[in-house]
Design a protein around this nucleic acid. Structure first.
Lengths: 337, 337
DNA sequence: TTTTCAACTGCAATCGGTTTCGCAATCGGT
DNA sequence: ACCGATTGCGAAACCGATTGCAGTTGAAAA
């Protein structure tokens, strides 16, 4: 919002034309003569004219904006996702309105309202871990704005979903540890509210089961923040029968796990093995680089956004069945197993 | 933009009132009777009414949106900044439109246009390293939209600027290395287009000079990405007379430096000392945690945003002199020196 | 009974860009 | 010179929320 809001009217007045003509001239409408177009463009340029997208959006009922709600931008995963989304959004000539829920249910609700009020044409969302009630999402869907969930998804809503095959990713991780001869494997999972945490835990259990190993409940810890992960890991390491391997389900938990291990002075992978879901840029920070499942942030963002644009492209009354799209997260060899 | 765009008119029709009355009722205008207010609110609720902020914004000529342009969201610094900004933006009841330039001048230009077209009331920006011409910024300022630069700032424009005291931060870093007995200190700086790189280099030079040490130009390397930093560092380490300390000016360069050191199998701080500008969450990933200047991302974001709101609050014709605000980045002791 | 005033509510314009419809001028052809 | 077609442009409505102004109603005061 400027102090110098040059409008179509200003240009029109200067040239003795109508707003309509100026508008058309600027977008090369065939009805307008080349001479007029040229003079209009010249004046627009000299006046430093910028079209008011807000007005345009009001008229079109199209804002050309996609909304994104993430728990937080920190760490490696979500920035990667954002890159992927941005690429697609830009390709379609849209813009991205990014909001953070800070893991708070209330904030998430507010954010949704805000996106609706801003006439976004679609929403990409990864839910906060404190969210247990999903009415705010269904309201938006009923309102007619398509949502695609990614990573931290909600099922059983009329929305598409893009995520990693978490169960098999976790299964493969733990299997890798087992095949390396580890038998006392702990898991540092996240808030079990989240489907993603549940699924990664499920993969862990499946792998152990397959190897005929019992479940040690004291090896299963759940944490929300790196500090908590560090604390829990320290407890694990101080047990009389400590684990010889730790599976961390995210970069967030992993960073806490690693701190605890460092603090304890353990050597990786000699004293203890470590594996998890980590973006490349994160896992290669460590020495040796971690062996980890690539959580495919970039690809998830891209895919989620493409799916969203498919919805937006369609007539909303064509009821598509919600799709569930799984990506495979490849295991990246490091030296931590 | 929805398929179910409930408008004031819909509510008005249902109740046999006018749009005007409904609008006033919803915002508790004193002219409206309590009975009317109540019934309006009830209907609005049941219809799942959401005010169209786009329309409102057009009418008010206030979008309640702040624009943010950053080179990229990756790594640790900018996410911290965004957190700081968000906090303030939310406090003022505004929203944040985040755009990434991806370090490209052209994209940065586009992003600015976009923000203007979206009627943002102010802009926070950290410039791309490929930007050498700043006309796009001055055009925006002339247009009447206030800009506050942070971190990667532009001086001599009519805009406020919030940044670290880079020279003294760098000076202190290098001094720390010197006081630890290191004499062969290399610097891994960024693109020297950027004032921030120049200043951090200047601090480095000053410290050396103060200790009566000559400048070894082969110890000064400049790089844009972690990969480049890794490569350059490897070269440094392979010299016949390699440095015994490295000063990395950002988390981005630091991550490359560290990889090279790890690959070379050197021990920190025994074989080589390392220092830099790193957010806490980043520097404590390493073992030992890095000794580093805190780049104060959160605080910079907060401050920049507060300064911006001061500008927005003022009548734009009250010409304030541009302010330059320095924050001090404290040295965080780790174990890398 | 008339005046006065407060309490409510509606009309219509506004924000800036877009678009439908239609009009006037010009052109080509006969 | 006449007719239909084409070109170039403007008037006005529209998107949805807001607001200055004016109008209506009812009750209290004169």
């Amino acid at each position: 919002m400027a102090g110098n809001p040059v409008t179509l009217q200003d240009i029109a007045d200067l040239l003795g034309l109508s707003r309509a003509t100026v508008s058309r001239a600027l977008k090369d409408h065939p009805d307008i003569s080349d001479i007029t177009k040229e003079s209009v463009k010249k004046v627009a340029e000299s006046l430093n004219y910028r079209p008011n997208l807000v007005a345009s959006s009001l008229r079109h009922k199209k804002s050309k904006v996609i909304g994104l709600i993430v728990p937080q931008i920190s760490y490696y995963f979500f920035p990667s996702v954002i890159h992927g989304i941005e690429k697609v959004v830009h390709k379609f000539g849209y813009n991205l309105l990014i909001l953070q829920s800070n893991e708070e249910y209330e904030r998430e609700k507010e954010n949704l309202e805000l996106l609706i009020s801003n006439n976004v044409e679609g929403i990409l969302a990864s839910v906060a871990r404190t969210t247990t009630n999903f009415n705010h999402f269904s309201r938006v869907i009923d309102y007619g704005v398509p949502i695609v969930f990614f990573d931290r998804v909600v099922k059983n809503l009329d929305a598409d979903v893009v995520l990693l095959d978490d169960i098999s990713g976790a299964y493969n991780s733990v299997k890798t540890l087992l095949e390396a001869g580890r038998r006392k494997i702990a898991i540092c999972t996240g808030n079990l509210n989240l489907l993603i945490s549940q699924n990664r835990l499920k993969g862990y259990k499946t792998a152990l089961q397959e190897f005929g190993l019992p479940l040690h409940h004291e090896y299963i810890v759940s944490c929300e923040w790196p500090e908590e992960a560090e604390h829990e890991t320290t407890e694990l390491l101080n047990m009389t029968n400590p684990p010889d391997a730790i599976f961390a389900i995210s970069d967030l938990t992993m960073s806490g796990v690693m701190k605890a291990i460092h603090r304890k002075g353990l050597k990786i992978p000699d004293d203890i093995s470590v594996i998890g879901f980590c973006e490349d840029s994160f896992r290669t920070i460590y020495n040796p680089p971690l062996t980890a499942i690539n959580p495919m942030g970039f690809e998830i963002g891209q895919k989620a956004c493409e799916v969203l644009f498919e919805r937006i492209g369609k007539n909303q009354f064509v009821r598509l069945d919600p799709r569930v799209i799984y990506l495979d997260g490849p295991l990246m060899e490091g030296g931590s197993v």
